[in-house]
Amino acid sequence: MTRPVLRDPQALPRFFFLLCAITLMWPMLILAQFQPMALFDASNREVMGNFLQQFFPPQLQAEFLHRIFKAVLETLAMATAGITLALVIAMPLTLGMTQSLSISRIGPANGYAMSQAGRYVVRLVMVVMRGIPEIVWALLFVRVFGLGPMAGVLAIAITYGGMLTKVYAEILESGNTQASRALFLAGSNRLHAFLYGLLPHTAQELASYTIYRWEAAVRASVVMGFVGAGGLGQLMDQSMKMLDGSEVSTILLVFLMLVFVADYVSWLIRKQLA
């Protein structure tokens, strides 16, 4: 009979990892030239003040607002189409990649090594898809399809397809997987084990992340507008080049409103799924 221990045996390793984290973080902050006090420097304050001053008052001419309205529609269409395509890419890949949806893991059955290898390949493809920034994909597609939203849509679909797959798989693996395992043991296939066993308790999180990605896609489509993919970004690019701060601030306000709406929609859907 061993004597009961009155000390937390995990304390020492925990302390060690904390120390490691701090010693790693410190040089990184220095590398990143992290100097928050520079923000409050007198001369810097003046420069920033002047920059921000141009933004006021926002440009509210009817003709400009009309142009913004069209650009907003284009941006929303680009983000929505991009996310929809990303979903089409992500859903089958998620079902294939998620560990907790592996039938051959039970046992493990013959062919488990093969299916693990397959999962590894999918994981690699994901890394390539999301490892290359969407702006690079956009620059590539602009050369193929010419200026316009099409390039932006495809760029979002690829990068975000990769991100969605990764996070979906993690959400599905972190939750309770007893239900899906039980369904496999009753002869269920992968899709049904997901629908009946995993979706009920992960739907909220999956929806919330998808909507957040849509919000991020709206932002990304603005950035891609700078490289000629159309929408609000292209408009902003023009205003910036003409040094018209009031136009830029109107665009930013519209932008905030979009994010606000995304937030609200996310809340509505989460409430429905609760």
Binding site: A179, R181, G197, P200
Partner: peptide
Amino acid sequence: LIHQVPPLPPK
């Protein structure tokens, strides 16, 4: 198989 802890999603 009847599991000791019923494997049913709460929602």
